[in-house]
Amino acid sequence: MRTQRNLPRVNAGSMADIAFLLLIFFLVTTTLAKDKGIERKLPRKCPPGQECAVNIKDRNIMRLYLNETGELLVNDDITAIDELKVMIMDFIDNNGDGSCEYCTGHQLDDSSENPAKAVISLTTDRLTPYAEFIALQDEISKAYYALREQYTLKLFEKKPSELTASELKQVKEAYPFLFSEADVK
């Protein structure tokens, strides 16, 4: 017959309690970073019974296409993304119809009539690299910001961060952000 020996045992009940308390502690004290996305206002839905389609002259639309390999086509010409900011600024600030008093453009026939009519239209491919898409969005935003900053310094002699709400509204009306993101091809 065998005799039972008294083997030392570890009381695991208190270890489970400690592990549970540590888990609760880390869940409560950990902060999760909130990711920032691209700030864009989604277009409002067209009310039923109203016609919301707007006819825009071809000269007032700058067509951007970002293909599956990350190449950018601006009005069917391959362009480097780092050249886009200047191209957008020239397109928007063209003053093609001569009605813009604050525009400094060259009044070219193939660029926009004035900033209130200039639309940037972006089309992407389903396989477009996300990094290229974000870089493109950044360049578009930089162009609008640069135009608004020039306008602010010229008209108000202030930095954009020092503007009042009414002055900021006037700047946004002078250079409205007219952006169209077409369906993915």
Results as ranks from 00 to 15, higher is better:
Thr31Phe: 10
Lys169Phe: 09
Ile120Met: 11
Val171Lys: 06
Ala146Phe: 03
Arg126Cys: 07
Ser161Gly: 06
Cys46Val: 06
Thr3Ile: 14
Ser112Gly: 09
Gln170Lys: 15
Asn95His: 01
Leu27Lys: 11
Ile140Glu: 04
Gln150Val: 09
Thr124Lys: 06
Gln107Asp: 06
Leu178His: 00
Ser99Lys: 13
Met1Asp: 13
Gln137Asn: 11
Ala143Cys: 07
Ala16Asp: 04
Ser14Ala: 15
Phe25Ile: 05
Val86Glu: 15
Ala53Thr: 12
Ser112His: 04
Leu73Phe: 11
Ser166Glu: 14
Val119Met: 03
Met1Ala: 14
Glu83Leu: 02
Leu64Arg: 05
Tyr175Thr: 09
Glu149Asp: 13
Ser141Gly: 08
Ser180Pro: 00
Glu68Gly: 10
Ala116Phe: 08
Leu168Phe: 03
Arg59Asp: 05
Ser112Ala: 14
Ala53Val: 06
Tyr145Leu: 10
Phe25Ala: 10
Arg59Ala: 05
Lys169Met: 12
Glu181Val: 13
Leu153Ile: 11
Ile88Phe: 03
Asn60Cys: 03
Gly98Asp: 07
Lys172Pro: 02
Arg63Ala: 08
Glu113Met: 03
Lys34Val: 15
Ile120Cys: 03
Val74Gln: 00
Asn55Met: 11
Glu149Met: 07
Asn11Met: 05
Val171Glu: 04
Met1Leu: 13
Leu122His: 09
Asn94Pro: 01
